[in-house]
Design a protein around this nucleic acid. Structure first.
Lengths: 130, 130
DNA sequence: CGGTATCCCCGGTGATACTG
DNA sequence: CAGTATCACCGGGGATACCG
């Protein structure tokens, strides 16, 4: 609630590194460094708006609780907005806030690097010599 | 050892999301999604080569064990190279591999977003109205 | 200097079941 | 449909001490 579009303020401590300026990398990681956050955000970036179960299907192997917790965390951080549409049955929609959308370059960088520099292992058989 | 410059192969499972193509975001997070990895990498990107204690000083609040563990992990993932210089006392240098250096855009994106969109909280007093 | 070796703790993650 | 409510686990992260 209290739809403020302000920046989320980091309260955890280790933000400053000794003798260095503010570490933006650490700051970012505190907001999106959780296991499922980047995937969730990338999904919302791609589809715009998604409902709970849609999100769950998109991601595939995430439990209710974990998805719920993650979304809650993302809301607190003002990266995701939750909208309840009073229909029958109730529909709940999730979308990125402006803050969240501003993460696009970050997610794209992650995606690009992942697809370019990481080799997936199709584990039908280990083709490793050792 | 065995200085292969190949791509690290992901062995953990949840790489594919249901009905979707390879998820590069998840892949990336499996490699650099640990708490200290991005900071370490950003430090090495900035300084090129650093010794153990230099790295520790740069980061500030990281213990021996954790830094050691993180570096070990980064080596396994072929992102960081370790060189032992036999002097007295022994000098050990860490630098990014080519793989590691290729992360530059990612780290830059994280840094830029963090410095632009996250407000640091200098906790001398809570200036929050609520 | 550049690490190991222990030990411990907490919370992120997860499985399962239940609800408005 | 969109979640809570429990309970449990496991390992990343950390403090401290020791070593070649």
């Amino acid at each position: 609630m209290t739809e403020t579009n302000e920046e989320y303020e980091v309260t955890q401590m280790p933000i400053w590194s000794a003798g260095e300026e503010w570490c933006g990398v650490t700051a970012s990681m505190q907001l999106i460094g959780k296991k499922w956050h980047p995937v969730i955000i990338s999904r919302l970036l791609k589809h715009g708006t998604l409902r709970f179960n849609q999100l769950q299907d998109e991601i595939g192997d995430i439990t209710n609780k974990v998805l719920s917790d993650s979304l809650e965390d993302l809301q607190q951080k003002n990266l995701v907005a939750r909208t309840v549409v009073n229909e029958k049955p109730v529909r709940v929609e999730y979308e990125l806030t402006e803050q969240g959308k501003s993460l696009k370059p970050v997610i794209e960088a992650l995606h690009k690097w992942g697809t370019t520099h990481v080799q997936p292992v199709t584990n039908d058989e280990d083709t490793l010599t050792q």
